[in-house]
């Protein structure tokens, strides 16, 4: 099976979504405008509204979790799906409209320039830097500092979910040890230790069109705790004892 289909499928866009029926249509239309040839998959993480139906109506493939598994797990389902397609580059962005799909070409350009993982950063360009709470800004700065030190690349926005990556990175992230709740700083550092090359491009984050941010209240404290734990265990931790995901990834890669 080769020919024009290879070209069409060379970019895949995955959009994890939960209860985003009101917003996802516009996001998918914008993705279509920014990357007309891309195949788009929405991972419906156990939504209680019509997210899946709306996404399908807007031309996306829909993968539905039978119940909510978490943001990271939804991304990973997308990685597994992607590995079953022919693609060379993958873009992931959130369904709530925060990530402007118009930036997709610049993320892909950075991949073509030699990076394997490209982060869309809202802090790279002072003009686009959003106003956030002091605590959150300090937290962001701290993790940016830690990640930059460990990866040897200047990273300003390690918590960005707006990313582009090549197939090798997708294969790596499809493995079992991918966190199901907050995949960011720890994942970046693990990848850096394995020699993955990073790049950042400035993106504008729009105000959320509604819904609830992932990083809020008690979850911020848990996030800080979890990052501290996983980062300090990173050098000595065993790889996941579970095999299922590895086999799943291999089946997709074959």
């Amino acid at each position: 099976m080769s020919g024009p289909r290879d070209l069409i499928q060379s970019v895949v866009v995955i959009v994890p979504a939960r209860n985003e029926a009101d917003r996802i249509g516009a996001v998918l239309d914008a993705v279509r405008r920014a990357a007309p040839a891309a195949r788009i998959a929405v991972i419906d993480d156990g939504s209680e509204d019509d997210t899946g139906a709306v996404a399908r109506a807007h031309g996306a493939q829909v993968l539905r979790h039978p119940f909510t598994l978490g943001y990271g797990a939804a991304l990973q389902t997308g990685y597994h799906w992607a590995l079953r397609q022919r693609f060379t580059r993958l873009v992931q962005l959130d369904a709530d409209g925060q990530h402007d799909p118009a930036s997709i070409p610049s993320l892909l350009a950075a991949l073509d320039a030699g990076a394997q993982l490209v982060l869309g950063s809202r802090y790279l360009d002072p003009a686009t830097t959003p106003r956030t709470s002091f605590a959150r800004r300090m937290g962001s700065r701290f993790f940016a500092f830690v990640v930059s030190r460990w990866t040897g690349t200047r990273i300003t926005d390690p918590t960005s979910g707006y990313q582009a990556m090549d197939r090798r990175v997708v294969e790596r992230l499809a493995l079992d040890d991918f966190p199901e709740d907050f995949p960011d700083s720890d994942v970046l550092i693990a990848l850096a230790r394995e020699g993955v090359r990073f790049a950042e491009v400035p993106v504008q984050m729009r105000e959320r069109l509604g819904g609830v941010s992932m990083h809020r209240g008690g979850r911020i404290a848990y996030y800080a705790y979890k990052m501290a734990l996983t980062l300090s265990l990173l050098p000595v931790r065993r790889s996941s004892p579970f095999r299922a995901g590895r086999e799943l990834a291999r089946a997709g890669a074959d």
């Binding site: 991972i43 493939q61 829909v62 993968l63 539905r64 979790h65 039978p66 119940f67 598994l69 797990a73 990973q76 389902t77 597994h80 799906w81 079953r84 079992d176 199901e180 996941s240 579970f242 299922a244 995901g245 799943l248």
Partner: peptide, 19 residues
Amino acid sequence: SKLTFRNRTLSQRVALLED
């Protein structure tokens, strides 16, 4: 922890198979 992991993998697999 083990069951949570298995649950996740199974659900992901269900989503992929349905597709």
